Simulated assay, not measured.
Amino acid sequence: MSKLHIFQKVSNVIVYLFFLSATVYTVVSPSDGEVGEGHTYITPSFWISYVWTLIHLLLGGYVIYQWFEAAHDAAIHGVGWHFVISVLLSSAWLGLLKSGHTLIAFIFVLLTASSVSYVFYNLEKNYHAGSIYDKLFIHAPFSLWHGWIVFGAVINFFQLVSHTSEEGPGVWSRIFVSLGVLFLATTAIGYVEFKKQKGDVTGAVVIGLGLLAIFTNQQDAWIHWFTLAAAIVTLLYPARPYVCKLVGRNSDAENAPLLG
């Protein structure tokens, strides 16, 4: 292992600890009990923020597992310096949301999504999981993170361009929210279909849980029930290959990985 590789891995550990502390401050204990400061008609319930608990747990496993020989190539060349970049961008995004700089925060969440997306697709294409440890501590954390950042970007976008009123949502607000929910649901389905039914179930589940969190937080009847329907479809869709197998149709269910 070269000195540069050691420096890179040490840097991963340092920024992970920074990321953990920044997340505890800005997400786990926000002042208003919501994800971010601005409340909109697509704002989810606070409990969805605890997805970060699992993400951080698995990323903690990553910064430990990177020191093992089996993870060296994927960590150094598959993830590379994008872990450091993604952590710093994501921490800046959360801090900007906390301080109410919604527009700048949206720019940073898009940059974070770009960096995490690079890692996600590079791992899927070039560094296939060879063991359960590869799945848990290399592929799974970035799959979860990718799904979460897509969900967070949509929430941030609505904070930027919409607002609530005492009269409740109008027709156009309901349509706008429905389009956002539909985008999230179709994105989750796209995760599952990625690589011809050998795609990323974890990212789809994150978005599905996010839709459930919107359902539990929004009381307008149209938004409430439409989001529930989208959440149900999103969460059940990954089981489609297994259902097809049970009814005797051809599928790749036996090859579909649970961790992407």
Rank of each mutant, 00 (worst) to 15 (best):
Met1Val: 13
Lys3His: 12
Ile6Val: 15
Phe7Ala: 15
Phe7Asn: 12
Gln8Pro: 00
Asn12Gln: 11
Val13Arg: 02
Ile14Ser: 02
Tyr16Ala: 04
Phe18Ser: 11
Phe19Ser: 12
Phe19Ile: 03
Ser21Tyr: 11
Thr26Gln: 05
Gly33Ala: 07
Gly33Arg: 07
His39Asp: 04
His39Pro: 00
Thr40Ile: 04
Ile42Gln: 02
Ile42Arg: 04
Thr43His: 06
Ile48Trp: 01
Ile48Arg: 02
Val51Phe: 03
Thr53Lys: 01
Leu54Ile: 13
His56Pro: 00
Leu57Gly: 11
Leu57Trp: 06
Leu57Ser: 08
Gly60Pro: 01
Tyr62Arg: 09
Val63Phe: 06
Val63His: 04
Gln66His: 12
Gln66Thr: 11
Ala70Ser: 13
Ala71Cys: 06
Asp73Val: 05
Val79Ala: 06
Trp81Glu: 02
His82Cys: 08
His82Lys: 12
Phe83Arg: 03
Ile85Lys: 07
Ser86Val: 01
Val87His: 03
Leu88Thr: 08
Leu89Ser: 08
Ala92Val: 13
Ala92Leu: 15
Leu94His: 10
Leu94Met: 14
Leu97Lys: 08
Leu97Val: 04
Ser99Ala: 10
Ser99Arg: 10
Gly100Thr: 05
His101Trp: 13
His101Ala: 14
Thr102Tyr: 12
Thr102Phe: 10
Ile104Ala: 14
Ala105Gln: 06
Ala113Met: 14
Ser115Phe: 05
Val116Phe: 06
Val119Thr: 13
Asn122Pro: 00
Leu123Thr: 02
Leu123Gly: 02
Lys125Val: 02
His128Val: 12
Ile132Glu: 11
Tyr133Leu: 09
Leu136Trp: 06
His139Lys: 09
Pro141Ile: 05
Phe142Leu: 06
Phe142Ala: 03
Leu144Gln: 02
His146Asp: 02
His146Gly: 01
Ile149Cys: 07
Val150Ala: 09
Val150Leu: 11
Ala153Met: 14
Ile155Trp: 04
Asn156Tyr: 02
Asn156Asp: 10
Ser165Gln: 12
Glu166Arg: 14
Glu167Ile: 09
Gly168Val: 10
Val171Trp: 14
Val171Tyr: 13
Arg174Glu: 09
Gly180Ser: 10
Val181Asp: 00
Val181Gly: 01
Leu182Ser: 13
Ala185Arg: 02
Thr186Trp: 11
Thr187Gly: 01
Ala188Gly: 05
Ala188His: 01
Ile189Arg: 08
Ile189Pro: 00
Gly190Arg: 07
Val192Ala: 06
Val192His: 06
Glu193Asp: 08
Glu193Cys: 08
Lys198Arg: 15
Lys198Met: 11
Asp200Phe: 10
Asp200Gln: 09
Ala204Met: 08
Leu209Asp: 00
Gly210Pro: 00
Asn217Ala: 14
Gln219Pro: 00
Ala221Trp: 07
Ala221Gly: 02
Ile223Glu: 00
Ala229Asn: 01
Ile232Thr: 11
Ile232Asp: 01
Val233Met: 08
Val233Phe: 13
Val233Pro: 00
Thr234Ala: 05
Thr234Met: 05
Leu235Lys: 08
Leu235Gly: 05
Pro238Thr: 08
Pro241Phe: 09
Tyr242Glu: 06
Val243Gln: 09
Cys244Asp: 09
Cys244Ser: 10
Val247Ser: 07
Asn250Tyr: 11
Asn250Val: 13
Asp252Ser: 14
Ala253Gln: 05
Ala256Tyr: 04
Leu258Phe: 13
Leu259Ala: 11
Leu259Tyr: 11
